[in-house]
Design a protein around this nucleic acid. Structure first.
Lengths: 200, 200
DNA sequence: TCATTTAGGAAATGTTCATTTTCTAAATAA
DNA sequence: TTATTTAGAAAATGAACATTTCCTAAATGA
């Protein structure tokens, strides 16, 4: 933990790597991997293309770092939201709210890096496509576990199929991120209430 | 209706335009607009790039024709599936089956042109982005009308909100097409039965 | 027959892209 | 001070891309 205070050799970075990655993230999220050009990334990151290559090796590696950071940021934000909640049902409802909010307004139009990469995965190499695929499958497992937890604590009907229900909820949230690209989703509270019917 | 039997001037086409569009459709569906290169389209369509430009003006125009044809083909297939069914509830269930099947196996991995174009819409010009957006919004209206029909014929609970429910079902199917890019969705019959709980 | 029209395609063109090279700047280590 | 290391960026490079040009082929109309 904590930044290393050890002086590093050579000329020090003039820019903040994490800030640069955050700016690149916006470009990759709104435009996708292929349509995000180095010159576009260069403008957004406030670095010349030469500096990008010196710091991040190439576009592909920059994307991997951005993608990893995206998963990390989203994971942290989600964990913070779910932390105070105890029952499986409450956690599932809050998880839905998290996705509904992400699919709304400016954030919705920016889009999801996982959804974007999954949709264009056939235009990416095996490794990049694998990152997207695994992120989707990890989400499925995460939902499945929330449902099972709810069934154990009695907040979710024991008769529903966790795997199938996880698939449906996963589709729902993936679809929210698609829809958020072009339009708003109606009232979040009402939406959550109705989606929770899937658990009855 | 019917092909015009009038002889056209000049050398006749050696290829079938619709067949060529179908081949181009596969490329645009699997790779997306930006990643689909002319040389890739050229190979798939069995035409040199020069011939593509002579017949379809440019990549953008080819895409518009492919997109229009995609909507037309999907619309026809869906109408045929729904035609024999009378109640709103039955039609909605069959509509879900249609999307579940489209999101499965090879067809699922090929992906949906509407979902793909919507996700990369910020990398397209206004007009192309508008095509994707309107296709999504038309789907929402279509679902909304099926729900209202079901409420009128008594097959769907009159108390549910058609607009909200349409949004949720739309997200579900958009998400299916994303998920279909990387994995299979469990048992269709069980999935439909559970999704229909949203209408209770 | 021959002028006209359109198709097909090889090769050329110009642009945009990702990437590298080259040089200068700014730090540390000795 | 000086050698070494790394950063930053302008300019050069080469590849891939969309698009056009140019020539030949194959049809119709007069």
């Amino acid at each position: 933990m904590g930044r290393s205070p050890v002086k590093e050799r050579g000329r020090p970075r003039e820019f903040d790597t994490d800030r640069a990655l955050d700016q690149a993230m916006l470009v990759f999220r709104t435009r996708g991997y292929h349509a995000a050009s180095i010159s576009e990334l260069s403008t957004a990151m406030g670095l010349t293309s030469g500096s990008i290559y010196k710091a991040f090796r190439d576009k592909r590696n920059l994307f991997i770092q951005v993608f990893t950071r995206y998963l990390s940021q989203r994971g942290t934000a989600l964990r913070n939201r779910l932390a105070p909640l105890t029952s499986g049902r409450e956690r599932l409802a809050e998880w839905l709210r998290f996705y509904l909010e992400s699919a709304t307004a400016l954030e919705g139009r920016r889009g999801c890096l996982v959804v974007g990469s999954t949709v264009e995965s056939r235009a990416l190499d095996e490794e990049l496509a694998g990152l997207a695929r695994q992120a989707v499958l990890r989400n499925r497992t995460f939902i499945d576990e929330m449902i099972r937890k709810g069934q154990r604590d009695g907040s979710i009907d024991a008769r529903i199929d966790p795997g199938l229900t996880a698939d449906l909820l996963l589709c729902l949230t993936l679809g929210m991120r698609v829809m958020g690209k072009v339009t708003e989703i109606s009232d979040a509270d009402a939406a959550i209430a109705q989606i929770m019917k899937l658990l009855d």
